[in-house]
């Protein structure tokens, strides 16, 4: 093994490696633990948890698309009580590093979830999934509306106090992602998760109707990677000090490297795990090799490297 420092930080949270699961793509963690030791990756990001148990949307919930897939799961989950008692307790027992993702229908729901998580031992950071509909604003997605996004983050910040890093997860379905990014950082977020899925639709040629039970779905996988790279690049350019958890279509070490060059300090892997249960281990090993081969002595040196001035060497 080389001298490469592979560790990373998001706010005050430290991780030995920069490859994480993506929210909603690792279930409770138990399922992937069958294929590798969860402690060997940077962190597990849990599926977005809400206050009450949720049944989610009707099936069909997925459609494969060229180099990607659409999903409309609808945040099916056990609710915060069962999550804390079962899933989180198990993950803590495994000594995995844990980022808990929360989602809400109202700004108040986010704050009350933060209240439940405050003081719970074993959590490294909070990912706030604001890419879900705000029932108090005609179902407009929080992350697509600056004030709504800020209200959520302010509420979570106030409730959680200063210790636990808050990572706001943004939607790429906006005209100007930089202004939303700046807004949530001003509201108290420590970092940003970029990007959530891109809204899409598939129409079934046999039924001649939208294929998914939820009609629209979120596009993920390699098809969206250029969108993720662009979003991360733009935000890092505007806010170079803000740590970014990048994601979107990463399925190889080279893909993860691309997001890091754009400005990501860590990378989540979602859809790739569906096609390959050990994708995270593969990506992590490949990334380590690429960084070494390129002559970086630490991951940190590579973060945002694509932004270096024209005149600089390498």
């Amino acid at each position: 093994m080389s001298q490469l420092d592979f560790s990373t930080t998001l706010g005050n949270a430290w991780f030995p490696t920069p490859i994480f699961t993506a929210s909603g793509c690792a279930s409770s963690g138990k399922e992937l633990a069958q294929f590798f030791d969860l402690r060997d990756m940077g962190a597990i990001v849990t599926k977005s948890i809400m206050t009450k148990p949720r049944a989610g949307r009707a099936t069909p919930r997925m459609a494969e698309t060229p180099s990607g897939m659409l999903n409309s799961i609808g945040l099916q989950g056990p609710g915060i009580d069962a999550f804390l008692a079962n899933d989180l307790a198990w993950l803590v027992e495994q000594k995995a590093r844990i980022i808990v993702s929360i989602a809400g229908e109202t700004a108040e729901e986010f704050a009350s979830l933060a209240r439940r998580l405050r003081g719970v031992a074993g959590i490294s950071a909070l990912e706030v999934n604001i890419s879900c509909p705000n029932v108090e604003n005609r179902g407009m997605v929080f992350a697509c509306h600056l004030e709504s996004a800020q209200t959520v983050i302010e509420g979570v910040r106030r409730t959680i106090g200063g210790d636990l890093p808050i990572i706001a997860k943004l939607s790429p379905d906006v005209t100007d992602i930089v202004s939303i990014a700046r807004g949530v950082i001003d509201a108290g977020a420590d970092g940003l998760a970029l990007i959530n899925t891109v809204l899409g639709m598939v129409i079934n040629p046999n039924t001649m109707r939208p294929h998914l039970g939820g009609r629209t779905g979120g596009l993920s996988g390699p098809a969206i990677r250029p969108i993720a790279v662009r979003a991360i690049y733009q935000v890092h350019e505007a806010l170079p000090k803000v740590p970014i958890l990048g994601m979107g279509g990463v399925s190889s070490g080279a893909d993860a490297f691309e997001l890091i060059l754009a400005g990501a300090s860590a990378v989540s892997v979602g859809t790739a795990s569906f096609g390959n249960p050990t994708a995270i281990m593969k990506i992590q090993n490949e990334l380590r090799q690429i960084l070494t081969d390129k002559g970086f002595s630490s991951l940190r040196e590579a973060v945002g490297f694509a932004h270096r001035p024209e005149s600089s060497v390498r």
Binding site: A26, F35, K47, P60, R61, M62, N71, F274, G275
Partner: peptide, 9 residues
């Protein structure tokens, strides 16, 4: 989508 319990589809 996954066959191993991680996607909920």
């Amino acid at each position: 989508a996954c066959g191993i319990g991680i996607c909920m589809t």
